[in-house]
Every structure is written in C-alpha cells, then in structure tokens.
Design a protein around this nucleic acid. Structure first.
Lengths: 124, 124
DNA sequence: CCGGGTTCCATGCGATGCAAGGTACCTGAT
DNA sequence: ATCAGGTACCTTGCATCGCATGGAACCCGG
C-alpha cells in the first residue's frame, strides 16, 4: 500500500501496539457495550491501532477469562448474532489504573525522544 | 514500597514497556555511545521505564544482531571492561522512523482515553 | 585469599500480536 | 434450490518480547 515506509513503519507500530491495545479496547467499551467487529473498525479508523481479527478475538477471550468484561448475545437486524462486550467493575478499575499510569509513561517516552541526553559521567 | 498499587500498576506498566523500550534505548545512544549498565541506570532514573538486566542485555543482543548498533570494548578505570554500544546508520534510521510514528500513536491513545466515544450506530 | 562491587551474558517461562484457517448466519441473484 | 458475497464469530500455531533467575569474569581492599 504505502510504498517504502510500509515495512519499517509497520514494524515500529506493531511493537508499539503491544499492551496498549488491551486498554484501548477497554476504553472503547467505557460508554456502552460493543461487539467484536465494531471494535475492530473503531481501531482501524484510529489509524495507528489498526489490527486484525486474529488479534482482537484472542484479546477479548483473555478479557473475559480475567473477568474484565462480560458478554451478552444479541440479535442483529441483518447478519449473524453479535456478542456484545461490556466492562465489569474490575475492567473499569483496570482502565482507570491505565489512565493513571499512561501520562507518566507517555511523557517519559517524549522526553527520551526530544531531550538531548547530556552525560551520565558528570553527576556521578 | 507503594502499598496497594504495586501489583496492578506494575502489570499495566509492564505491558506498556513492550516495544517502546527498544527505541528509548536507541534514543539514549543518539548523542554518544553507552554501555549496558549505564543504559540500565538511565532507564531506572526515568521512572516509568525502569527495568532489569535480564531485559536490557537480550535487547542489546537483538539490536546488534539486526545491525542497529555496533559495539566496541573499552577499558574501565575500575572494574571489568565495558562494551559500548553505538548507533549504526540503520539504527539511526530506525530511531528516526520511530520518532515519526510515535506522536500519532501517542495522540491516538490519548484520544481513546479522554474522548467520550459517542456511538457508531448514529453515523452508519 | 576472600568478600564485595561492577560488568557482562544466557536460559527458560509466560504473555502477546498476528497471519492463516475455519464455521455459521443472512441476503440477493442465478 | 443453489451459490456468491457480506457479516460475524472463533481457534491454532508461530515468532517475539519482557523479565526473573543464575552465572561468569574482572578489579580492589582487607
């Protein structure tokens, strides 16, 4: 698709997703229950977090296994029934915890990228 | 140490580190070569990216395997010799690539955490 | 000679992203 | 009735990565 940068950019982005995806999925469920493909599309629309079904469904299984979400089947007007995922109290707590940790993490990475790291020898 | 949040915060932070650590280490080498323990201390001082030798050395081995860094042994005034890691052209390119991708990723996660995601059904 | 500090490294486990493959439901055209 | 195509769900297997653990080598001072 994008010529040239597809490989390297994909590599960097792929590594980045690790761990963050879980909490972004939880964040998507914050306001209302969502179903698998809906989450997939929301991630795809975000651009930087686009992923595949092979990533999302195992992730959702883990969230259910760890009691971070509960699921309910629901009929669809057209198409097969959908499994809707909703946050549990534990899930909401995990999301809050992540929201608390994220800013510090984000700023740390920012500083690593921007700050010219002087020298460690001076102060020691 | 910190009572209560140690487990959950540690879990969230641990997942976060994945993938980002590699590029923060590269960023540390941007200005001058560094050796293993020096990198370890720099990460520890940053707070959010504190890790252990068991993480850093395998990471450095991978960077060397992928030709992102080159290493040179150097005598130490006191203690065993140090292996200094320096960026190669590929390493610098990978770091630049990450620096290009990171802001978009960071903003995406920020928006997932802050934006009240309305509904996908309305617009469809 | 021996304990402690510093520096390097390898092994093994658990968790994760992801490509690939598979099943089932519905609709509309042939 | 049959078949193609879109939607939706899920599993399996591989590669990778963070990290705890354990270990080796070097130097110094007692």
């Amino acid at each position: 698709m994008e010529p040239g940068d597809s490989t390297k950019q994909a590599r960097a982005a792929a590594q980045l997703r690790k761990g963050v995806l879980e909490y972004c999925v939880l964040a998507l469920m914050r306001d209302r229950p969502r179903y698998g493909v809906e989450l997939l599309h929301a991630l795809e629309d975000s651009g930087a977090l686009a992923t595949s079904q092979g990533t999302v469904y195992p992730l959702l299984s883990r969230l259910r296994r760890d009691d971070l979400v509960t699921t309910t089947w629901q009929e669809s007007a057209s198409g097969p029934p959908r499994r809707y995922y909703a946050l549990t109290d534990s899930g909401r707590a995990a999301l809050d915890e992540f929201a608390r940790v994220w800013p510090g993490f984000r700023n740390t990475v920012d500083s690593f990228l921007t700050t010219p790291h002087p020298s460690t020898g001076d102060l020691a």
